[in-house]
Design a protein around this nucleic acid. Structure first.
Length: 607
DNA sequence: AAAGAATGGCTTTTT
DNA sequence: GCCATTCTTT
């Protein structure tokens, strides 16, 4: 048999072998989804002789894309021609960089990417101009308004008719101004990357045609998490060849809050007639008990497609359910369990602690530090959001793009050089001197590589000295900048380096340090698996989150999130809740989560 | 204009 | 309890 196929079960083989036409793979948790996908790509290349460059595989995280690439390299070590593989956002950036100059969409190919903090500062700036200061209008709420609109592919003009009430009217007014500002800065936010690509394809059919011809075979991972724009994008690209393979699981749709619409996966068969549907229902990951727990939870949702996961794995240990005094006891319980598991050969890196909100990590961290156990928080305050990193990147961005107002404003006063808000508006000698300095550095940096430029800019602008003299944690901050230099060493030019930092979120860099326990949110753990899983803070108001309690739809999303958490576990699952815990400084007691009541009693071990 | 001190607002989840 | 913004002093 073909060596690419012999690791697959019959259904997986079928999914890998189909060459043409639309395919929908409904892949339950732990059913070998990534394996099937990678082997399918390998089979297309090796067996059907499809050039790798004609294959597009879209994922939701950079990590998933990298994982896929590594696995394909393992199956086809000799093939070095790469398929197009990446997140929706990174693929769109590639296309926009190539094509925008040929269009009159109002942006050029060297656009800058604005992250969520940039968005917020733009909105605050606009609020100030309108004299609507933050107490009156919450900038974050405005950002949410704009994001929601963009996720639904609604322009500010189109939103006009949907905007009811004072807040929405003002928010939409800001949306208009925000778009104007972005355009004046040649800037695109995350959503724009997708929106402008779709606009490009709609307005320039010859460009669309070009990419339709490049992407003869398209695979989309986590199809249940696509939003309206992503749906449109794929539809445009796949229209010509119809060789679209969508993979997903509606039970694991957890991003509706940012516009994902799992009806996209439910409607796939209507959108693409003659689709071949393949169901992967055998779970290779978890014990029977864990799977039973997951199944019992998800069955409480009214909106779902019926499917049954099964496994040949053993029944395994019962699910441990523990009620603790407070969040510190909860942390101590986890630690003592991990310690005793270690006696049986479990490594700390086999364990993951999952929580609903980042804020919950602190209590666990504190106890882990006390007991000298190594840990690694995935997500949370990202490396790229640390102020010293953002400062240095702002300097570097300013070198790459002298017009980047937002970068200039960030670093004009770091270190202090007598340039404040007033000078930035009215100009003056001090500002001119600074701009001259930057111009000088720019000239010198032309010949240099990104890592050297970071060093150059940190020294010449006096940033390094200022940081070392004034910051209490100067050393660790400078260490972070050195870390950034290490990242930069992988790049030959500034543009590529900046691209990476703009799109790469911290979730993407999980190092496999064997001695460290991983801590992360339920959202971050999607797509991963661990032998031992701790789900903490299983309390009403926390999980399900209080903000989800009013809307049945949102409650169902919480339940799917719970399902995702449970199905990460291979061998053992712990669920814990605390009688009371600190919220915003004061104590609050929450009843145990309703999800715990939904578990079958006969597989529980209650402490 | 900058640095330090005090106040108030708030936290769901993320590419 | 923490953060970001605002107020006060230098």
């Amino acid at each position: 048999m073909n060596p690419i196929l012999n690791e697959l079960n019959p259904v997986q083989q079928q999914a890998a072998q189909i060459k043409d036409g639309p395919i929908l793979i409904l892949a339950g948790a732990g059913s070998g989804k990534t394996k099937t996908l990678t082997h399918r790509i390998a089979y297309l290349i090796k067996h059907h002789n499809i050039p790798a460059r004609n294959i597009l595989a879209v994922t939701f995280t950079n990590k998933a894309a990298e994982e896929m690439q590594t696995r394909i390299n393992r199956i086809l070590p000799q093939s070095n021609s790469l398929a197009w593989m990446g997140t929706f956002h990174s693929i769109c950036v590639k296309i926009l960089r190539r094509e925008l100059n040929k269009t009159n969409l109002g942006f050029t190919s060297n656009f800058t990417i604005f992250d969520d903090q940039d968005q917020l500062s733009i909105i605050k700036k606009i609020l100030k101009e309108l004299s609507l200061d933050p107490p009156k209008i919450n900038p974050r709420a405005v950002r949410a308004f704009i994001e929601n609109a963009k996720n639904e592919a609604q322009t500010a003009d189109e939103m006009e008719k949907f905007s009811r009430g004072e807040f929405q009217k003002i928010a939409n007014q800001i949306y208009h101004l925000y778009e104007k500002y972005l355009k004046s800065q040649n800037g695109l936010d995350f959503d724009d990357l997708l929106i402008k690509t779709v606009a490009l394809f709609n307005l320039y059919p010859e460009i669309l045609k070009k990419y339709q011809n490049i992407f003869c075979y398209i695979l989309v991972d986590e199809y249940q998490d696509t939003n309206q724009i992503q749906y449109q994008l794929i539809k445009l690209l796949a229209r010509q060849h119809l060789n679209l393979c969508a993979i997903g699981d509606d039970s694991q749709s957890i991003y509706q809050f940012r516009g994902a619409d799992f009806r996209n996966i439910l409607n796939f068969e209507k959108d693409y007639p003659n689709v071949q549907v393949i169901k992967l229902e055998q779970n290779y990951r978890s014990t029977k008990n864990i799977l039973k727990a997951a199944q019992d939870i998800i069955e409480k949702n009214l909106h779902r497609t019926d499917k049954t996961l099964w496994t040949q794995n053993p029944k395994g240990a019962p699910i441990t359910l523990a009620g603790l005094e407070d969040e510190q006891e909860e942390a101590l319980f986890i630690i003592s369990e991990i310690k005793s598991l270690r006696q049986t050969g479990v490594k700390p890196s086999d364990c993951v602690v999952l929580y609903r909100t980042h804020a919950q990590s602190r209590a666990i961290e504190e106890q882990l530090i006390k007991t000298n156990l190594g840990y690694k928080i995935i997500g949370g305050v990202s490396f790229y959001q640390r102020s010293e990193i953002k400062d240095i990147l702002a300097y570097v961005k300013l070198l790459a793009n002298p017009h980047s107002r937002i970068s200039l404003e960030r670093i004009a006063g770091k270190p202090p050089r007598g340039i404040g808000a007033q000078t930035l508006i009215k100009g003056g000698k001090k500002l001119n001197d600074f701009l001259k300095l930057m111009e000088n550095i720019r000239l010198i940096s032309r010949e240099k590589k990104p890592a050297e430029i970071i060093d150059l800019v940190a020294r010449r602008t006096g940033y390094k000295d200022w940081l070392l003299e004034n910051s209490p944690e100067a050393e660790s901050r400078w260490e972070n900048i050195k870390e950034l230099k290490t990242v930069a060493q992988e790049y030959d030019n500034l543009a590529d380096f900046l691209e990476k930092t703009a799109l790469h979120q911290p979730t993407d860099q999980i190092e496999d340090e064997a001695e460290k326990i991983h801590l992360m949110t339920f959202h971050n753990v999607k797509g991963l698996e661990y032998p031992i899983v701790f789900m903490v803070g299983m309390e009403e108001g926390l999980f399900p989150h209080s903000r989800s309690l009013l809307e049945p739809q949102e409650l169902e999303e919480e339940r799917r999130l719970c399902y995702v958490g449970i199905t990460r576990a291979k061998k053992r699952l712990y669920l814990t809740h605390a009688q009371s815990r600190r919220f915003f400084g004061s104590f609050q007691s929450n009843p145990a989560s309703r999800f715990l009541d939904e578990l079958p009693n006969d597989i529980l071990d209650i402490i």
